[in-house]
């Protein structure tokens, strides 16, 4: 297998000694089938052990290795050398404070996931412990897409609204709330309404769709947010007229 020399331009930042982020160049002999993550691993193991970045699974499922590659948010294990020019710029995800080099601070989005109340909420008792809820394939299909989120946070990095103000609860948390709202086993939609429909929730989204474009798992948060706007309006009217806020 042939190798190709890639000029990697990597953003560095060490808060203990750097006043501002800066770029470091590495020349990396890349195998044809490598992803950008493999090039970073090469740097770490062979050229500069002080470079810090997050990674684990190298199979697009753990969500650790999101970075900005040539200006766009990507999972670096899923961004292949074969699709890139000879010069590649790697920066941390945008819209987050930089913790160190390519590592960003995720506190804010971790709290937002929690705000979505991403768990089954019941008013009725669940079935006995040896009995499942029945759920048709059609009912599963309704929310399945929104279960695919790996929390890589590329959508927050792409979101212009979150870039303006991190008061906005944001795409992944909204999709997650929507996922549980749509689950036939859940009865907690009303409880998620207040958090999601107020001024920091769905109404802040300007529907640019950048989140869905950035999503490496085709979750389509933009669609979730649009559906929630409709749901939110319906709930508001239902509650105003004293109707139940839950699905049958």
């Amino acid at each position: 297998m042939g190798t190709r020399q890639i000029e990697l331009e990597v953003m560095r930042y060490n808060p203990e000694k750097d006043e501002a982020p800066w770029f470091q160049q590495y020349s990396v002999p890349c195998e044809e089938d490598w992803a950008i993550l493999d090039a970073l691993i090469y740097v770490k193991d062979n050229l500069d052990s002080t470079l810090s970045y997050r990674w684990s699974c190298h199979m697009m499922v753990c969500g650790s290795c999101g970075m900005t590659v040539n200006g766009e948010p990507h999972l670096t294990c899923k961004t292949f050398i074969r699709d890139l020019p000879d010069k590649v710029r790697v920066e941390p995800l945008e819209n987050f404070p930089i913790e160190r080099d390519l590592v960003v601070v995720l506190d804010d989005v971790m709290q937002k996931l929690q705000l979505a109340k991403p768990y089954i909420i019941r008013k009725d008792d669940p079935p006995p412990e040896d009995e499942e809820y029945p759920q048709s394939r059609a009912a599963l299909k309704k929310f399945k897409q929104y279960t695919m989120c790996i929390n890589c946070m590329l959508c927050y990095s792409a979101c212009p609204q979150y870039g303006l103000s991190n008061d906005f609860i944001g795409p992944a948390a909204l999709s997650l709330a929507h996922r549980y709202n749509l689950d036939s086993r859940d009865q907690g939609k009303a409880q998620r309404l207040d958090i999601l429909a107020d001024h920091d929730g769905v109404w802040e989204c300007s529907f640019v769709g950048a989140c869905s474009e950035a999503c490496p798992k085709n979750v389509d948060p933009a669609a979730a947010i649009q559906q929630m706007k409709v749901d939110g309006t319906m709930e508001w009217w239902k509650q105003k007229f004293g109707l139940t806020g839950d699905k049958p």
Binding site: E16, K44, S49, T50, L51, S52, E99, R100, D101
Partner: peptide, 9 residues
């Protein structure tokens, strides 16, 4: 080689 305290991998 990395003598930093912050996210020292």
């Amino acid at each position: 080689n990395d003598k930093s305290n912050v996210f020292n991998t």
